[in-house]
Design a protein around this nucleic acid. Structure first.
Lengths: 329, 329
DNA sequence: ATGAAAGCGCTAACAA
DNA sequence: TTGTTAGCGCTTTCAT
């Protein structure tokens, strides 16, 4: 079997209790004893058994992550951020993929309960009521969704969309199309609101299309709708859709940005890879992941202050090749 | 505190041991007792404490995953596959990102040891010697890398590359360029070998460029080298590089596939999004993830037969817009 | 500052 | 088929 604290204790001629203290709270033991213990542990190749510790402390040092789809680069980046920050804080991260299914989400949360100290829900699809129920059971942080009383990290989607809209206006566009994402998406609401604010402020005309499943294929469909309209520019809910729009425009022989301008959202890796490159609203995705861990760890130490725990991260417009001056129409 | 087996036992008027049996091996208890126990557990909202079970069984029901970079869609898909299969098998998955650093890999493995029943190493960067050492300590399965005596799941990279090469030949190409990935990459060796086999078989000429860090930016550099050569087609180590090549060719006004043909590898999501779409070798990435879990679970039950555990998954050429007939040069 | 002892929740012998 | 008992490896009172 593996080396236990008893073994280390014997080797260092101290009691198991002292080993425990020397290893987890070195300050409360004699420095020399601590050093001796540490050396003995090293020499024997001792490894703490977390399960045993967890049994008594009631903590697992594991956090759970639930994402709708790991295959989506947006969530993969988020998990990357979460994982790295969790590790830095002495936690491991268990990741679960709900396959975009709200019911599966609830199930996963159930399975994770008891196995983790807290959970991070990325863009959860479930109802707000269920969310509130769960938040009572187990420490919970959401990313990309806000709800009263549940700690969350969100992006300033509204401002990003507003800036994108102003950008188009400054290029002379007067009629804009919005290719929208799912109605249930919190960020869809925020982004559309940002667009509307700018539109009203400046007297632009806005044409709304959607809701769409936020995929590449939806962009293809959206493009035709936009083309049939008077819009000279289109704002897409996300980069995936924007890429689809770009592709369909290319197929139909429409030049971007000469004939029409396109703006995405998310700044996914490949938005810079196409031709033209995609003007988009960049989100600090990994950072959001890290921030969510910070919130969760705070929550674990002061479970009361959950209600005030909200972080909003800035977004920024990246102007690239897919937007240009408006064409007379 | 949470509901324990004692509570359930009391409620069902049986001993804790019976509760344990009724819940984990219902066959060995009286069906009626089992049912009674199950109901009591349900009623009280009982949840098994895995840490406590693990303490005595020596198993955690958790597997560890180590990937070089979660931000890379290739690995994200793999983790998705691993996670889903693990869950189906009653396991949770802890994921760790090494940030492409071989040393960090070793460290992560150390941290995970004791916390997981076994580990899956995705495209491990560490030396084969270290790998062999580790494989003695803890059940281990590799993906995208092969080594004697360590269970592994790999793709038939050689065949994929061979087919891609034959495809180019059938389009009349006579001089091919290879834009290579990292020397240390196992799959780089396999793919290049596949190309060489086809080249020798058919009397083509092969120009080798590289090694490159397998990124989009490297493709940009590679494109210029290829253009300066006699090659009418280029095979890239992976899709990321192929996309970079495509982009640079576009910038330099070279038409694809009219002037030059490009082939990638991996079939990442966005290889179908550009213009032209990318001809590439598709890999069943998620499936590889699932297969690796199968191997690992087998390994956990029969630790001896590790040496024979190898799976090779088929690759398939997907011809799309970036390859066409050779141009006279 | 350190040791002795108890016990976290569960499972596995062994008895009955 | 079921209960009793012991103990997994660790932390934490309570003494010393």
């Amino acid at each position: 079997m593996a080396v236990t604290m008893r073994d280390v204790a014997k080797a260092a001629s101290v009691s198991p209790a002292t080993v425990s203290r020397a290893l987890s709270s070195p300050k409360i033991v004699n420095p020399q004893t601590a050093e001796a213990v540490r050396q003995a542990a090293d020499r024997l190749g001792y490894r703490l058994n977390r399960a045993a510790r967890g049994l008594i402390t009631g903590r697992t040092s594991i956090i759970g992550i639930i994402v709708p789809d790991l295959g989506n680069p947006f969530f993969a980046s988020m998990v990357k951020g979460i994982q790295s920050r969790a590790r830095a804080g002495g936690y491991s991260a268990i990741v679960s993929d709900s396959d975009e299914d709200g019911n599966a989400e609830a199930e996963l949360i159930g399975e994770l309960t008891g196995q983790v100290d807290g959970m991070i829900l990325c863009s959860p699809r479930m109802s707000e009521r269920d969310l509130h129920e769960l938040a009572k059971e187990i420490p919970l942080v959401m990313v990309n969704r806000a709800a009263d009383g549940i700690p969350s990290v969100v992006f300033d989607d509204e401002e990003g969309a507003r800036q994108a809209t102003m950008h188009l206006r400054s290029l002379g566009h007067r009629t804009l199309a919005w290719a929208g994402g799912p109605e249930a998406s919190w960020s869809q609401g925020q982004r559309l609101r940002g667009v509307k604010i700018a539109v009203e402020e400046t007297g632009l005309e806005l044409l709304e299309f959607g809701p769409f499943v936020p995929r590449f294929e939806s962009g293809i469909a959206a493009a035709d709708l936009v083309l049939a309209s008077q819009a000279t520019a289109v704002l897409a809910y996300n980069d995936l859709m924007a890429m689809g729009i770009l592709r369909r425009l290319f197929e139909r022989g429409i030049a971007v940005p000469t004939d029409i301008s396109v703006v995405g959202n998310d700044d996914l890796l490949f938005s810079t890879m196409g031709s033209p490159t995609l003007t988009t609203v960049a989100l600090p995705i990994e950072r959001a992941g890290r921030a969510s861990v910070d919130l969760l760890l705070d929550l674990l130490t002061q479970p009361d202050s959950a209600a005030q725990m909200h972080r909003e991260l800035p977004t920024s417009l990246l102007v690239r090749g897919s937007t240009g001056e408006a064409k007379e129409k």
